[in-house]
Amino acid sequence: MQTTNNVALLSEKQFDEQGSRQRCLQMRRRILEVSQMVPALHIGGSFSCLEMVESIYSHCLRKVSGNFHDTFIISKGHGCLAQYVNLEHYGILPKSALDLFCKPDGVLGTHPDLGIPGVEASTGALGHGLGIGMGMANADKILGADRNVYVVISDGELQEGSIWENILLAPALKLNRLVVLADLNDFQSLARMSETHPNFYPLIDKIKAFGWECKEVNGHNAKSIFDAIANRSGEAPFFVACKTVKGKGVAFMENQPIWHFRSPNIQEYERALQELVEVYE
């Protein structure tokens, strides 16, 4: 079985915790650097999913001839900086690309577009990336392609009806190479999800009831995320419920809705850099 072999392959890997932590520090710094070029970007949601995205790029995606062979889609497209800093780190995007963030001469902006190196689907409107990822996984099944599809969604996105259409459909199509990671930072743009939609929790029971294999992890512990993925059975689509903190890493940004989209001013930027050093030391 291709699936079982692939899962086994991952579970034999050793997770480099120290390296992952260092990369996440550097990537948060880089995102802060980029924040100084634009008046608005989605820093809070990028920080909340950074360990999720980093663990996928560093340990889950297989490379063939220098390119990633498996597919990664950030369905919560506003968190694309978390993907861009990874693509930059692995040399898929040149440094100049992020240096031209949101500039007319550049290609990168606040949502990912198909055609950008390393971006496999245009997202930005919530509730789209999962369906596209499922179509890819279904085509892979039909064509006999050996690929895994990883999709990052958000808890706000889980309010979209299209997500639930797809949660219901994926096990029926036996898309067992599909891994969905949910960034559960409990914040939408305006308010806490637990306040606007109190019946959203417990989430994992709902997903399980739809026929998925599920695992709940600390979304800022990259090794836990990897371990969950590596130890899945491969007999159903896999859902990793990642408990996260919006704005993670910079205390004054954490759990504050304003940092959904605001860029820090120069004083806040310097303070944020200092806080990162303290957190990581």
Partner: peptide, 15 residues
């Protein structure tokens, strides 16, 4: 919505 999304993903794989 699933129908269209899946079709897009399948087209992205060359179908």
């Amino acid at each position: 919505c699933s129908m269209i999304g899946l079709a897009a993903g399948m087209a992205l794989r060359g179908m």
